[in-house]
Design a protein around this nucleic acid. Structure first.
Lengths: 197, 197
DNA sequence: ACTTTAAAGACGACCGGTCATCTAATTCTG
DNA sequence: CAGAATTAGATGACCGGTCGTCTTTAAAGT
């Protein structure tokens, strides 16, 4: 990787962190370049606009998360429903250590969907990808008989993922793990397990 | 109501609408006063700061919604679980007519929780109130035997409300009613009904 | 020397918030 | 009750500062 790509990456990583906690409109270009210790004038050599940066940051945010989550979600050594449970539960750490930011995609969805059609479409796509990953696991569980719900895996996945986003959002306001615990408590019920404490 | 209160109300109503679609940082004082056709200088005679306005708008947003929702949620002519179902389903209209804004409280939660402690606490309180209202209905359903879940009403309410917020958020990005349908499809499962199509 | 890229700094617009000024209502005086 | 004095509230010009963006200059690469 060349020098240029490295700097763009640095800008993306650090800027993403800033924008994840202060939002799109709450983050200035100066905030981004300051955090990355990159001269202000350089910003527009890497991104053609602030919106362009946000679009790239959105992709980056999911890349980082997908590294780990895809690996877990597709790990055939663990029963599919167990994978799902871990996928959600492993978020706990972020909560305990005074999480800030929450889900960057969720944040951008709320703040920018009505202001930028480009960002809305990108968010929609990333949300769909995430939902699809969950649906795949559910479909696998259905095939091996551990998923008994009469509802389609698509509906189940859509519900679960949205419920999860709501849970993460709530944790931002409450700063406690109750929302997460409630989510995990209901997970078996939703996928149709009698009781898998 | 005196003239002054009326203007403050106007500022609150119109400003709330603007801030609900463009967010806190995406809305300027000028945007608010222009929408209400109130002179810029007047703003600070009604609110001591932008943050103060947002706090008041947050209360206003729930007042408006609570007018109708409380009445529905506490209507003893309808079975409690049916009330809950309607409470969520009645949101449909907003979706069909190209909803903008979503849930103002949810928006502010995502955008401002990490920036303003005052707003975070207000959001947390309002979210709790909403959850409590749902818990009350669930408790009523448990008493009359229609709620069979072994999980506590508090956990159920927390999960349901967060799932709902996530659903509303997803609709902002997707601009379709699929998320809502998925939510409504799972509602009976969550509260422990076998199938109450 | 010539092309390409990074960086500096300027740009006008706009930000949240303040201020002196003006208006209109209230209180005081007779 | 009339008219003068006082004051609370309304107002838009204006503050220093920051915004996102762009032009211009400096540096680097070949």
């Amino acid at each position: 990787m060349n020098k240029r790509e490295q700097k763009k990456d640095l800008l993306l990583d650090t800027g993403l962190a800033v924008m994840a906690t202060h939002g799109y409109n709450g983050t200035s270009i100066k905030d981004i370049v300051d955090a990355a210790e990159v001269p202000k004038g350089s910003f527009y050599t890497y991104f053609k606009s602030k919106e362009d940066f946000a679009l790239a940051a959105l992709e980056r945010a999911t890349e980082e998360r997908e590294q780990e989550s895809r690996a877990l979600l597709q790990n055939r050594d663990i029963p599919p429903l167990e994978r799902l449970s871990r996928y959600f539960r492993d978020y706990t750490g972020a909560c305990d250590s005074g999480v800030t930011g929450g889900c960057f995609i969720g944040n951008m969805c709320q703040e920018m969907s009505d202001s930028s059609e480009q960002i809305r479409l990108k968010v929609r796509q990333l949300l769909r990808n995430n939902t699809q990953a969950i649906e795949d696991v559910l479909e696998e569980a259905r095939l091996n008989g551990s998923l008994t719900s009469p509802l389609s895996s698509a509906v189940l996945a859509e519900f679960l993922f949205n419920a999860w986003e709501g849970t993460v959002m709530r944790m931002k306001a409450s700063k406690c793990r109750e929302p997460l615990d409630a989510f995990l408590a209901l997970l078996p019920t939703v996928v149709g397990q009698a009781d898998a404490a």
